[in-house]
Write a protein that binds this DNA or RNA. Structure first.
Lengths: 154, 154
DNA sequence: ACGAAATTGTTGACAACTCACCTATTCGCT
DNA sequence: AGCGAATAGGTGAGTTGTCAACAATTTCGT
């Protein structure tokens, strides 16, 4: 006894398809860009952005929450970034389990070199495609979807 | 002699941030969903969708183009899916270099089982968050960004 | 008809992500 | 004080993605 599935109607399907295509192409191009012009991965980039925005020193889980990654992913990432000299770990005196993640001078240098280029590409590929009204509409729509997802179970 | 970078203005930045957050959360939830309720990866899913939509038999590169992946990625993916029994390779008579990728019966079964659930989640997490007008606006905006990117170099 | 160039697809090394499980510490309750 | 639960973080195995180089055809110009 199976119901016939409720497929998306044509408008819904083309909306979904073009959203997915756009998002994939855009993210793909931007992350390849970060990679080639800064020699960092997109992951390195975003971690350094959040870390330096927050003063260059954060508890491990605070950083993970800011970037909205699960701790395991962040843990591996921090390990790799430590090897690359972009961040360092510092033990936490108040809490024997804890760790602080610190942006090293090399980390600051890397993000300061990369950020203007990245912003330029965001502008060139995305912002410039849209009018201010469209951009603001997209912001609202994104926020709507985010709010909606909060209320939904997994 | 370095110019001061042109950062995004506050509206642009919040628009960009919420778009990125939305897109990451949405894609993340959907692909975890596909994974847990169908035991396939999101990659398996999309490949099977495109392949079966196209009649269940495509030249390797046609498939790669449909999914918009580079051939190397597709090659690895096809290898894995072949191991899992979802697709099979068939040699191409006209072109000694070529290969056809075929959706196996197990592949059809898998996609037919997975698709209704997936669509349900797309609807629940995304479509239902928006009015038809918003959805149509988003489709236009996405298309605009896509068209714009076409014209831009990497 | 022949050699250069393009096309088709593969491979191997490596980086990144996920998932489940693990350790060490701290908290909270009695 | 002491014990179970919660919290902070790490680890290893397995999967997936990327990049560069590769082999095997086929195409095309002359």
């Amino acid at each position: 006894m199976q119901e016939t599935p409720r497929w998306l109607d044509p408008e819904q399907k083309t909306a979904w398809d073009s959203f997915i295509r756009m998002q994939e192409k855009l993210i793909g191009r931007l992350s390849r860009r970060v990679q080639t012009d800064s020699k960092m991965s997109a992951a390195d980039y975003i971690v350094l952005v959040k870390l330096t925005e927050a003063g260059g020193r954060l508890r491990f889980l605070e950083l993970a929450n800011l970037v909205e990654w699960e701790k395991s992913r962040m843990s591996h990432q921090v390990t790799r970034m430590t090897k690359r000299g972009l961040v360092a770990k510092e033990e936490c005196l108040d809490d024997g389990r804890g760790a602080f993640i610190i942006a090293t001078p090399a980390g600051y240098a890397a993000i300061e070199a990369a950020a203007p280029l990245h912003v330029e590409h965001v502008r060139r590929l995305f912002i410039d495609a849209l009018t201010p009204e469209e951009l603001s509409t997209l912001a609202q729509i994104s926020q709507r979807v985010l709010d909606h997802m909060e209320k939904q179970p997994d």
